[in-house]
Amino acid sequence: MESAFLEGIFRWLHVVVGVAWIGLLYYFNFVQVPALKNATADGTASGITKHVAPLALLWFRWAALATWLTGAAILGQNFVSAFTLQGEWAEIGVGAWLGTIMLFNVWVLIWPNQQKILGLKDATDKEKTAARRIAFLASRTNTMLSIPMLFLMTNGLSHKGLIGL
């Protein structure tokens, strides 16, 4: 099979799972966090924390991994050139690093702390309070990083109108 064909398939799948990941990230930050504040005030938060959040987090973390893997597949043999910011691969390489930091935040900071917050893992009240702040800031950091990441993704590799060399 031609490599351009495979790259096209991976690029398409990368966008599909990337939309799922970043869509859920924006849902958490722009919808669920503010809604949960209001729901906690009127005693209806359990609907979100019990039924919505665990399912959203399931799709979120696996979509994050799938996005990284399909991104790595697009880079293919240029993976090292991108991650070492070589020549024309520097732009998409910085985007790939941002995506990698975001994947780390999802699996190492957000998911383990959300397990404590949602009661999926045992934690004291003090641990839950700390977990809330860590998960919140990691999620907000990812929202911030998604903006340059998407800029470099849409301008770095094949559409260099804005920052091309």
Partner: peptide, 30 residues
């Protein structure tokens, strides 16, 4: 100083500022 990530607007503005900084570095230094 307040953490800009505590507000949605602060988070978005930080993202755009970071984009400009990275684009400048890429265009001029890499």
């Amino acid at each position: 100083m307040k953490n800009p990530l505590d507000s949605i607007v602060g988070t978005i503005i930080s993202g755009f500022v970071l984009t400009l900084i990275l684009a400048y570095i890429l265009k001029n230094f890499l």
